[in-house]
Nucleic acid binder design. Sequence first.
DNA 1: CATTAGCACGTCATTTAATTAAGTGCTAAT
DNA 2: ATTAGCACTTAATTAAATGACGTGCTAATG
Lengths: 340, 340
Amino acid sequence: MILDERQKNLLKEIVENYIKNVKPVGSKSLCKKFKCSSATIRNEMAVLESLGYIEKNHISSGRVPSEKGYKYYVDYLMKPKELTGEDVLKLQTIFDNKQLQLSDTITKCMEIISDITNYTSIVLGSNSRENLLKQVSIIPIDENKVVALVCTNKGVVQNKQFVLPPNTEVKELVKTSDMINKMLIGTPINEVAERLEFEIKPIISQRIEQYEAIYNIFYDALHGFNKGSNVHVRGQAKLLNQPEYDDTNEIRRLMSKFENNELIRKIEAKDESDSINIYIGDESDFDSNVTIVKSHYNINGEEGTIAIIGPKRMEYDRVVGLLKYINENLDSLEKESKHE
Amino acid sequence: MILDERQKNLLKEIVENYIKNVKPVGSKSLCKKFKCSSATIRNEMAVLESLGYIEKNHISSGRVPSEKGYKYYVDYLMKPKELTGEDVLKLQTIFDNKQLQLSDTITKCMEIISDITNYTSIVLGSNSRENLLKQVSIIPIDENKVVALVCTNKGVVQNKQFVLPPNTEVKELVKTSDMINKMLIGTPINEVAERLEFEIKPIISQRIEQYEAIYNIFYDALHGFNKGSNVHVRGQAKLLNQPEYDDTNEIRRLMSKFENNELIRKIEAKDESDSINIYIGDESDFDSNVTIVKSHYNINGEEGTIAIIGPKRMEYDRVVGLLKYINENLDSLEKESKHE
DNA sequence: CATTAGCACGTCATTTAATTAAGTGCTAAT
DNA sequence: ATTAGCACTTAATTAAATGACGTGCTAATG
């Protein structure tokens, strides 16, 4: 069964009204807008409810959008919102700053978005499955300290400092790193540690005296690579300003999920079909009370994901508008850089 | 005026009782323990109250320790608690793992402590004022990307990736980094960016074509050095399990302070007199409802700070016991390494 | 046949009052 | 110095009363 025009409008009105006022919407409040009596509205509401687009909290409460209702709204009813002049102003100062590196530009934009929306924003660099080992370097710092530098083909770099184990020399570390560079380049970064154990360890165990300690250094540097770096989360506390979080247990649940990096894993796991994907409630696989809006960027080969987490009762039109704006500006950054 | 033995015991009992039960403690509940009537307890309580060690929430409520009372307790009444076998077990598996680098050992220990106490733990590397520039390196990644590596004398290392601006060559970057290494070594890391502007920029502006872009890269790398890295916070969400945080506004206040890194700044600002310092409530300069316990380590020149944040009603004896245990074990790590 | 007015009903939220529990300060006796 | 006893205060809990909101259904209407 398909919705007629009035029903669509009604659903749209209910969703937007609820997003704005956080209160279940009753039939009477919609009379003027639809130029009919509350009874008529009630009849139409009954239809929408029977189709699963709206729900009641209890027998005599107003209606609230269901997940299906939100989904219908974002798929068919919503129009991305034009940014306000104020918002444009804030974002444009970042895009205009030509001295910023791309990743900084994006991070700063998302911080702004979190600030103006009161939702949580996330920027994820390309994830470890897509990153291939490009280069390992050993940089001596002083007589007994070195830094191991690991770079991937996506340009992600991490370093880790090590105290040289007794009876080892930097020379041997460098020798080992050369070997790694010869044999393991191109390996997905999350598999490198394993190959190190099975392919490199046997070799160095024959050639190098203190191979165990040296192996451990590289294992450590490579194994710990992906762990949490290259991720920017902003506005976790802001999200708590949303009226849905007026319950301490709810807050505790959410905050500890955040702290466990569950969100990041879930976001990485979702594959995207469109330029902007919206996962509402249970669809998010993260928490039934939130919506995750996710978008992917690829500017001159530098890839990453940006996402916004807010209540299901999110200002979808505004968020989508903001993300589209960001995407457009990133695209034009790319074009500019090709011009030069 | 000085407290007599019974008054000290009474204060100790009140503090520990309140820490344990979170409820104001009344005179009757202490009769058996002090082998006297509730009236006597009340008289003594009145004395403690007039001296400012305990307070009432309202005219007929039990007593609660004041900040002054907590302070007296930790200074004169408390004995650090022996760890339970369980706690020793958890921590010892970390200290026994000889493959861990020092900073990882400490971080993991503090994570454990946060888990078993439900307080928030923090590990701070040596702060930027104490870090002096030791070395800047430029590592080419591919034809148009480089990594700038900045090391300090404390062994802190950070990297930042840059896209090469058009019309610049790696050679020029390296030349500039050599210059920085000649002229700015030993500068406090938080002053380097400034000196870069006034001492290096004028020079390269004459020798290098695209000096502006190159200057920006180094400025960026050096300016952003201290920002938040080298810090590990764990258990923010755990802290919310404490019964004092049964109020959403309280939670919001605390979480947004956390997110702004206010805590880290405050902890860095506090100078320590003893091996373990305790800042209660307002003394913390952070939040009147929390206590910060701070301790400093210096193992073979690698320095840092560890701290625990909990409610004023913190299990002081346990926390101090845990931190002492960690300090002792770190000391013996140091001795071991000297033996070798 | 879609729309509407009208009414009985259900649920929640808020207010008010009453009661109970916990604990104090003070006084007078020991 | 200690204690028993009593009057008093406050907070917390419970119960009842009320009002606000909004629904579903029925019967009348154009």
